[in-house]
Design a protein around this nucleic acid. Structure first.
Lengths: 251, 251
DNA sequence: TCGCGTAGATTGGTCCTACCATTCACCGGC
DNA sequence: GCCGGTGAATGGTAGGACCAATCTACGCGA
């Protein structure tokens, strides 16, 4: 492939990062297919108009992320690797992105984690925490009256609530997983809030969930969680409904 | 701190990796505390007897992993960072290691994931897969008669079984999580198999679990999972009980 | 005496050049 | 037609030079 047009020179005190990002973007949007070979270091050096050390640092970063693997020798170089599930050392968000994990699977996983989280939260969090959660959730209501709510703020609040809930389990792994999921998926997820009906129902659902937690009602809260994800899947299906499905699938 | 004795020169075609590992080890075993400063690049260069490029690549790798952050200028350099839960972009295994997440929390998380996995596996896997699982699990029995079983092989088989089960959900995220957990925890986990009683009970439990899956008995399988983790926690508690924890462990 | 600004030292960031080690493709001899 | 050698391509390492950012310390002036 002729890649001479792809990249532009990098500048400032972080040329390495910049270059790594450019290449990573090219890989993630599949300009470079798995199995393909990146240009050699010396070639990239001229394309980016930079020293070889910088190129090497960028490549090293991609290698560290598991995006490429490197072989020496003639016709060696950096091969784009399929980030398959076996590279578990890597970040969850990268895995979700490169494999186009569909929303259904993410939702399914999140639902299972959420159910455990609320159960543990009810069992372990003290009254103060539970009431604090309820108070925080109530803030969502302010978004109900607005015709054009601040999506940024709404998404942020939703994120914080999820993390707060995860913390209430007392088990840091749940918090880690929650943050990882949101890091890898937030952009897609919160776009759903654009839908008015979804927004209203979801906010109400959040309030119910928090109240059931405060009231120590594990079964009711579990039912709320179920309702939440039913809602989410329904909204996803509707949004992607007519024809967008075909392209979204994969391998 | 005087660190001149800490490191030894690296060799072969991957000096950078080697050095990164040495430094990472020093950080993880807390020879370098969070907040402390690593020696400057030029110092490390003389300590490792290598070129500065190699040092920079090693440092870049650590930065990529989120273990350090780097500032320019006098009294700048590489600062050891506390990998807290907020860096969700990072790998789960690193998080487990640096934060000394205790076995109980890991077990709790695994149990919740396992319960979901078996439920989904029953619902989605076809007969062939289920019978395949049973057949594979039966191989564990061969370890029952041996006085000195090959722990390596036993651990490996256990790992494969878990992943096989995760795959049967049809949701790649579960497989990812399972692999991440095992990557970050396997060494400690499979040491438990050293205990004869635990080994026997766990193997039997595996067989039960597989059979219940093949028989499509969600409740029974859930009960098996519960039994498994009860067993595991009990064994951990016993092993960690007196004080043997300190020395006998890993590396 | 106090405060501010400048000069120097420290450290990471970049560039360059040379050389080594590995691997592969091509070519010539058997 | 097969085998082995040889050279080219490519990543890996070494070392030096300079730039840019940052902190420290000193000295000048109010």
């Amino acid at each position: 492939m002729d890649t001479s047009f792809l990249f532009h020179p990098a500048q400032a005190g972080r040329a390495g990062e910049d270059i790594a990002l450019q290449i990573e973007a090219a890989i993630l949007n599949e300009t470079f297919q798995p199995g393909e070979r990146l240009p050699s270091e010396r070639e990239l050096q001229t394309q980016f108009q930079t020293g070889r050390g910088v190129i090497r640092e960028a490549i090293q970063a991609l290698k560290q992320k598991g995006l490429i693997e490197i072989r020496k020798g003639a016709s060696g170089g950096a091969n784009v690797k399929k980030v398959d599930v076996a590279n578990a050392g890597e970040s969850l968000s990268l895995f979700l992105k490169q494999n186009h994990i569909d929303a259904g699977h993410v939702a399914e996983f999140r639902e299972s984690v959420d159910r455990t989280i609320v159960t543990l939260a009810i069992a372990r969090a003290d009254e103060t925490e539970k009431l604090g959660l309820v108070a925080e959730v109530e803030k969502l209501r302010t978004f109900l009256d607005q015709a054009e709510p601040d999506m940024e703020a709404l998404g942020e609040l939703d994120r914080e609530l999820n993390i707060r809930l995860a913390k209430m389990t007392g088990n840091p792994i749940f918090e880690w997983v929650m943050r990882a999921l949101q890091h890898g998926f937030s952009s897609k997820d919160y776009a759903l809030y654009e839908d008015l009906a979804y927004r209203e129902k979801t906010i109400i659902n959040w309030c119910e969930t928090a109240q059931h937690i405060a009231a120590n009602e594990p079964l009711k809260v579990s039912s709320s969680i179920g309702a939440h994800y039913a809602l989410l899947l329904q909204c996803v299906a509707k949004g992607a409904g007519p024809e967008a499905t075909t392209s979204a699938e994969e391998t």
